[in-house]
Each structure stands twice: as structure tokens, then as C-alpha cells.
């Protein structure tokens, strides 16, 4: 299917395109009827490297997960693209599905995966001067000291 390794998950179609072919696959699928990008997110597999993947797909730290939808026939397909830790970049889908603009910004904000050629790749949920990417597995929970500077000590 679109020349990608395919491994279904619980009855849902999952394709594993390479990072280089990812945008072409999405374009080909858009021509095939998958005209809506329902969701784009990412997973940081730092703490769980040994997940099952089909042959020919090398597990990397980050995985960008794209859910495409064909509203004519009600089909769904999911793409899982491996993104290495050393070079966390992936081409943007903005030119195929402009609706991914905010979702890609969210992934950039939360995981630090950069979308090349994205028109406005800035943080979206965290403050602009925030250091780090909260949804990465090596970001600790609750490690931020809560400061009430103006409150005084009573």
C-alpha cells in the first residue's frame, strides 16, 4: 500500500513510511481520497525502545503519528514516521493539509521535533521563553519550582 511497510494495529490500518517519502505518501493518499488530516501528534519512545515494528523499519526515539481520514468512504489510515533523536526534523505537511499548522506547532512545542518549511514554527502552548519540551520522557513531572515572588512570607 503506497509502497510502505504496513502493520495493522487492532484492526486499524497503519503505514510506516520513511521520513524521506512521508510527504509524497501523504500527497498520494490525498489523491486517493484521504483528503482530511484528522490528527498529527508524536510519541517519545525513549523509555520504551523495543516496540514491535514491521521489517525494514528501524526504531528511532521519536515517532510522528498522522491520522488521515477519507470522508467519502469513512476510511482511516495512520502513518507512523520514525524521527531520529540526533536530527529531530521532518518535512511539514502544511502544503498538503494546511490544518496541520497548529498540530505541528504543538508537536514542536511538546517534543522539539522541527518541521522544516513550516510557515510559523513557534511554541503554541508553552510560553515563548520556556526551556525544554514537556512531553519528552526525560522531562520530569513536577520539577518546576512554584514561585510566588510577590506573596512575601506573611
Amino acid at each position: 500500500m503506497f509502497d510502505c511497510p504496513r502493520a495493522d494495529s487492532l484492526g486499524q490500518v497503519v503505514l510506516h513510511p520513511s521520513r524521506e517519502r512521508y510527504v509524497d505518501v501523504v500527497k498520494a493518499m490525498a489523491d486517493d481520497g484521504f483528503t482530511t488530516c484528522a490528527d498529527l501528534t508524536a510519541v517519545d519512545f525513549l523509555a520504551h525502545p523495543g516496540r514491535p515494528l514491521p521489517d525494514g523499519v528501524t526504531a528511532e526515539r521519536f515517532e510522528v503519528v498522522v491520522n488521515l481520514l477519507d470522508i467519502q468512504t469513512g476510511r482511516r489510515t495512520r502513518l507512523r514516521v520514525q524521527v531520529p533523536e540526533g536530527d529531530p526534523t521532518i518535512p511539514t505537511l502544511f502544503d498538503v493539509h494546511p490544518g496541520t499548522e497548529a498540530m505541528e506547532r504543538e508537536v514542536y512545542d511538546m517534543f522539539g521535533v522541527e518541521f522544516t518549511d513550516h510557515p510559523d514554527l513557534t511554541r503554541i502552548l508553552m510560553p515563548e521563553d520556556w526551556i525544554g519540551h514537556p512531553l519528552r520522557k526525560d522531562e520530569t513531572v513536577g520539577a518546576i519550582p512554584v514561585q510566588f515572588k510577590e506573596a512575601g512570607n506573611g
Binding site: 501528534t41 517519545d44 503519528v65 490544518g99 497548529a102
Partner: peptide
Amino acid sequence: YRLHMRAPSFV
């Protein structure tokens, strides 16, 4: 391991 909600308002 990862919980993501596709929020309709966000899109």
C-alpha cells in the same frame, strides 16, 4: 505510555 487527545476546538 502516551495519551493524546485530538481536540476538536484546537483544530
